[in-house]
């Protein structure tokens, strides 16, 4: 079917084009609100700036389609194949993209706020500057989880997004805003979150092994039992963050702000906290084997029952510190 025929039928109130062969069709800028294109073949189609609001595109093939600036708000794209599609600046607000294939798709500056992205494959996709506010990427079970491996989420807006259990291995999240986002159990191994904002984010049991977290802002974030082994966290802000039982072994925490942080039972073995601010931090029962606190500020911190025999406290400020035996530090 060609564009002319489709538009003629659509104008005559026909909206069902399910299963149609529309390879390479040019419908740029057309008003096709509510059209049913489920299971249609739209490979290489040109749909730039088209209005496909509330369209039914379930299981449609949109491989390599030009959907830049296309309005797909509240569209049904369940199981659609959008591999390598151009969705630059597209509107996907509230769209249903469950189980869709978006590998290598370009979603630069796209609006995906409130979109359902459960079990979506976004591996290698470009989501730079995309808005994913309140989007759902939650893992339902191991076989039904969003895949963002190798995706670019630089400066993406993920405030309040649900990324529970999401696969974010080696994802580029530099400068992204993940405030109040839920990342429980998410795998962020080797991810780069430099300069990202995670104020009040939920990262319980998240995996951040060897992640780059330089100057990342985790103020008031919850990181209970999170695994941060060998993470690069220079100048990280963990002010008032909650980290009981977290693993921070060999982490680089040079000049980190850990003031008022909850670090009870935290593993800080071989971590480098040189010049860090740990004022009023709670390090009760913390594991501090060969931890470097050189020139750190530990004023009023609690080190009750912490193991300090091999820690380096050279030049550290210890005024008001509650020592392992429960006594106050004496000069």
């Amino acid at each position: 079917m060609n564009a002319e025929e489709l538009l003629r039928q659509y104008a005559a109130d026909e909206i069902n084009f399910s299963g149609a062969n529309l390879v390479g069709i040019n419908l740029a800028g057309r008003d096709l609100i509510g059209i049913n294109l489920s299971q249609s073949d739209l490979r290489n189609a040109i749909l730039m700036f088209a209005y496909l609001n509330r369209a039914n595109l379930t299981k449609a093939s949109l491989i390599h389609a030009n959907l830049s600036g296309t309005n797909l708000s509240q569209a049904n794209l369940v199981g659609a194949n959008l591999r390598d599609a151009d969705l630059h600046g597209a509107i996907l607000q509230g769209a249903d993209l469950r189980s869709a294939n978006l590998t290598l798709a370009d979603l630069l500056d796209a609006n995906l706020s409130g979109a359902d992205l459960r079990n979506t494959d976004l591996s290698g996709a470009n989501l730079t500057g995309a808005c994913l506010r309140g989007a759902n990427l939650r893992e339902e079970n191991r076989r039904y989880a969003a895949n963002l491996r190798g995706a670019n989420l630089r400066k993406a807006d993920l405030r309040g997004a649900n990324l529970t259990g999401a696969d974010l291995v080696r994802v580029d999240l530099r400068g992204a805003d993940l405030s109040e986002a839920t990342l429980r159990g998410a795998d962020l191994t080797g991810a780069d979150l430099s300069g990202a904002i995670l104020r009040g984010a939920f990262l319980t049991e998240a995996i951040l092994v060897q992640a780059t977290l330089r100057q990342t802002n985790f103020t008031n974030a919850k990181l209970e039992r999170a695994n941060l082994l060998e993470a690069d966290m220079a100048s990280v802000i963990l002010k008032r963050a909650i980290l009981p039982d977290a693993k921070l072994g060999k982490a680089n925490l040079v000049r980190a702000d850990l003031s008022f942080a909850q670090l009870s039972r935290t593993d800080l073995s071989r971590a480098n906290l040189e010049g860090a601010d740990l004022q009023d931090a709670n390090l009760t029962d913390a594991y501090l084997a060969r931890t470097n606190f050189k020139d750190a500020n530990l004023t009023n911190a609690s080190l009750v029952r912490a193991e300090l025999s091999s820690a380096n406290l050279t030049g550290a400020r210890l005024q008001g510190v509650m020592m392992p035996d429960g006594t106050l530090w004496q000069d």
Partner: peptide, 11 residues
């Protein structure tokens, strides 16, 4: 870019 200032400087 990132520096590698990992904790290799411990006593």
């Amino acid at each position: 870019v990132s520096a590698d200032l990992r904790a290799d400087v411990l006593p």
